[in-house]
Amino acid sequence: MDKIIEEVVNEQLNSEVWSSGLYTAFQLYFSEQGMPMLSSWLGVQVQKKAGRIRKMAEYLLSVGGEVCLEAQSFRPEHWQNPMGALDAFFSHEQYFQQQVTDFLNWAHEVDDASLRCLAFDLYADEVQVSDFILELLQILSKGRRRMLPLE
């Protein structure tokens, strides 16, 4: 197996592991804050990340590569309020989205059709969460304006 491919796929795999741990911290925090829908959605995202991790590991092993997991530790996060947690979440999303974009661009340039298929399969349904939530907030603010008395 090409060592550069092995290193880059392992790097992305470890990014998913790290992101999954952070999503779990967000999930627990929002659950404690009485936000069960957001917490539940984050739980689904953790499961999707677990599936991606499994697929990357299977790919590496199937082509004779090694799966190299970095030591990672997670601790409970103590955000001051839900808005602070959402700010941290958006920052993470922007950072991670750039990692995904870089990985997909790299996979597109690599002369390995099975890797390209894997990469695009992993992230085919990836939606930038910050864009989704901003659109939702726009919808809510328009709805709220309609409920205000006419001036």
Rank of each mutant, 00 (worst) to 15 (best):
Y123R: 03
D111N: 04
A124E: 15
Q99S: 07
E126D: 03
F96P: 00
D111M: 05
A88D: 04
L104E: 10
A88H: 08
T101N: 14
N105L: 07
Q98C: 08
Y123A: 02
N105K: 12
D112R: 14
P82C: 01
D87G: 05
Y123C: 01
Q94E: 09
D102A: 12
V110F: 10
A88V: 03
A124D: 08
P82N: 03
Q99F: 05
Y123T: 04
D125I: 01
Q99D: 07
Y95R: 01
E93H: 03
D87N: 10
F89P: 00
C117L: 12
A113S: 07
L118P: 12
A113T: 12
H92E: 08
L115A: 01
N105M: 06
G84L: 04
Q94S: 10
F96T: 00
E109V: 09
R116W: 10
Q94F: 10
E93Q: 08
P82I: 01
F96V: 00
Q94M: 05
A107Y: 15
A113H: 13
F96K: 00
S114C: 05
L118S: 13
D121R: 08
Q94L: 11
E93S: 02
A85L: 05
G84T: 12
M83Q: 08
N105S: 06
F96L: 02
V110R: 12
D112T: 15
E93P: 03
W106I: 01
W106H: 06
A107I: 09
F103H: 07
Q98P: 02
L86D: 03
Q99A: 09
S114M: 05
L122E: 00
M83I: 13
Q98R: 13
W106D: 12
D111I: 00
Y123V: 05
P82G: 02
E126P: 00
E93I: 06
A107V: 15
L118T: 11
Q97A: 09
D125R: 10
D87I: 11
L115G: 07
F90I: 13
F96C: 00
Y95G: 00
Y95L: 02
R116A: 13
R116V: 10
D102T: 07
Y95I: 02
S114A: 14
A124R: 06
Q94A: 12
L115E: 03
F103A: 04
N105E: 12
H92Q: 08
R116Q: 12
N105T: 14
V110A: 10
V110E: 10
F96Q: 03
A85V: 03
Q97S: 14
C117V: 15
A119T: 07
D121K: 13
V110P: 09
E126G: 00
